[in-house]
């Protein structure tokens, strides 16, 4: 193994802290395929709560979370996803999208520091009146924009894009692999983003400093199909709670990870950065697929 004095290849290279390793050693686990892993179930509940969606599904990678979301939104083979030209889904994941779901892309120029704007999305969603074969099923947003150097999308721009897409009956997916870097940098609440989009993905293995896994977040009714696709794609977990225990996860946040001086450990470790905003306005119904009435199995999550 190559060792570096400072490894800046990616924010995915972080190693679990001693605190995290102790939490892993003591984590309650079960077979997540059966919905029996209490640590995974708590993580999913907590993720949904933080980003303001009804439910969440823990999957192995950010690519898989995006690919499940794209599959959920795509209505036909050869249909298009509109996104910024260099978006992760349309570059790193382009072959995955084609192979797994027959998805192609309508690539739009990122006119605002690598981000789409409502104006560019409006133009990008113009119907294909000439060839009459191009159908856009989804608008995919990336925040922060990785290939643009981690720039943040303005929340009001996301709101405007959402309105444009919704007026055309097109859903919006947010690739928020580094969403918490954006919320820390702009002092915004992750739930403000979750409320604007139909589905949202974020990674625990990037700015949050966790070891493995991403959360696909969205409405309860999508989760049984999301879980089916997770299994279809070969990404079902077993005792995944072994590296996830919500109440003992890193206190290191996107904010501390993005500054030169590390703030160290806090007294009340938590997996997600907190925000000063009042959380009482968030949706009351926050359920994982396995605790929803539409889910096929009973949850064993704790109160």
């Amino acid at each position: 193994m190559r060792s570096y004095r400072v490894d800046l290849r990616s924010d995915t290279v972080t190693r679990p802290s001693d605190e995290m390793r102790r939490a892993m050693a003591g984590a309650e686990v079960g077979d997540a395929w059966y919905g029996d892993d209490p640590s995974v179930n708590r993580l999913q509940d907590r993720a949904a709560e933080v980003v303001g969606t009804e439910a969440a599904l823990y999957v192995p990678t950010g690519t898989m979370a995006n690919q499940i979301a794209l599959r959920l939104h795509a209505r036909g083979s050869g249909h298009l996803v509109a996104c910024e030209r260099r978006a992760h889904v349309a570059s790193t994941e382009v072959a995955s999208s084609a192979v797994l779901s027959g998805i192609a892309y309508r690539r739009l120029d990122g006119v605002d520091r690598g981000h789409l704007t409502a104006e560019s999305v409006t133009e990008g969603l113009e119907p294909d009146t000439y060839f009459d074969v191009e159908v856009v099923d989804l608008v995919a947003i990336e925040n922060t924009a990785g290939y643009a150097g981690g720039t943040c999308m303005r929340l009001r721009e996301l709101e405007a894009i959402r309105r444009v897409a919704r007026s055309r009956g097109i859903p919006v997916h947010l690739d928020g692999a580094r969403l918490f870097n954006a919320t820390a940098a702009t002092d915004t609440d992750p739930a403000d983003y979750g409320r604007q989009v139909d589905t949202l993905m974020f990674c625990t293995s990037k700015g949050l400093g966790g070891p493995i896994g991403s959360l696909l977040c969205g409405p309860v009714e999508l989760m049984p199909e999301a879980r089916r696709v997770q299994i279809l794609f070969g990404g079902a977990w077993r005792q995944a709670g072994a590296w996830r225990r919500r109440d003992s996860l890193p206190s290191r946040t996107a904010r501390s990870a993005s500054t030169r001086t590390m703030s160290g450990q806090s007294d009340s470790p938590q997996v997600f950065p907190t925000c000063s905003r009042d959380r009482s306005t968030r949706p009351r119904s926050r359920r994982t697929w396995c605790s929803s009435t539409s889910g096929p199995r009973n949850s064993t999550r704790e109160p």
Partner: peptide, 11 residues
């Protein structure tokens, strides 16, 4: 180059 939680001032 990407900063992260394991990078300190010395790095």
């Amino acid at each position: 180059m990407v900063t992260h939680a394991d990078v300190d001032d010395d790095g």
